[in-house]
């Protein structure tokens, strides 16, 4: 786990415009989330259900500063986790794009440790396409969030969503192809 308070400090620094803080923040938050997620997935029928609850709450409190919150179920927790990750990244991409357009120094999203190669523009386009997908198929959009923003495996997603691995895999592949096609179409239009 990261040190208590570290995330909060970085969050406020980032909100105050410190881009370095973001680069430090994301891997910490992500590592925490993954660890919690892994424990969460394995906790049922196990003696450490309680500790897991505490962990989940702790992480959530750290991420949001919200004090009163209970989880309806696992899907709820991961849904919120995915939202948090998505919002953090999209906010960052927006700032990066604005800075670029304003003639400032471009901030590379992939500069931080652990980021895969996606440009801020692509991330924003993905975010928009994902929102459109959510209008016709909220479930598929959720699968993409869990896979892409939280990094759950297909099997884990199936567990969280109480669906079969086969179904999730199929929906994931279809949604992924559609999103790729959307982004490709957009690029072509802009070129």
């Amino acid at each position: 786990m990261s040190r208590p308070g570290e995330v909060t400090t970085l969050l406020s620094a980032w909100r105050g415009g410190d881009q370095d803080a973001f680069e430090k923040l994301i891997p910490i938050v992500y590592a925490d989330l993954r660890r919690i997620a892994a424990r969460y997935m394995r906790s049922e029928n196990e003696g450490h259900t309680l500790q897991t609850t505490a962990l989940v709450h702790e992480a959530y409190l750290r991420l949001t500063g919200e004090r009163e919150r209970t989880w309806e179920n696992r899907a709820h927790f991961f849904g919120v986790a995915a939202q948090i990750m998505r919002n953090l990244l999209v906010d960052h991409a927006r700032k990066a794009v604005t800075t670029k357009r304003g003639g400032g120094i471009a901030v590379q999203l992939d500069a931080g440790a652990g980021m895969t190669e996606i440009s801020p523009e692509d991330l924003l386009a993905l975010n928009e396409a994902l929102a459109r997908l959510a209008e016709v198929d909220p479930r598929a959009s959720r699968i993409v969030e869990l896979r892409y923003f939280v990094g759950l495996t297909i099997e884990e997603i199936a567990e969280v969503m109480d669906a079969s691995v086969r179904t999730v895999n199929r929906e994931w592949k279809t949604a992924k192809t559609w999103l790729r096609a959307e982004l490709r179409g957009r690029k072509r239009a802009m070129a």
């Binding site: 994301i26 891997p27 992500y30 590592a31 993954r34 990750m85 990244l89 440790a113 652990g114 980021m115 895969t116 190669e117 996606i118 692509d122 991330l123 993905l126 993409v144 896979r147 892409y148 923003f149 939280v150 990094g151 279809t174 992924k176 192809t177 559609w178 999103l179 790729r180 096609a181 982004l183 490709r184």
Partner: peptide, 20 residues
């Protein structure tokens, strides 16, 4: 979509943040 599935793409090929 079929055409897209035949193309190379890195988008969404792995989670946005890779494991530490």
């Amino acid at each position: 979509l079929v055409k897209e599935s035949e193309r190379e793409s890195d988008l969404l090929s792995r989670p946005v943040l890779t494991d530490a």
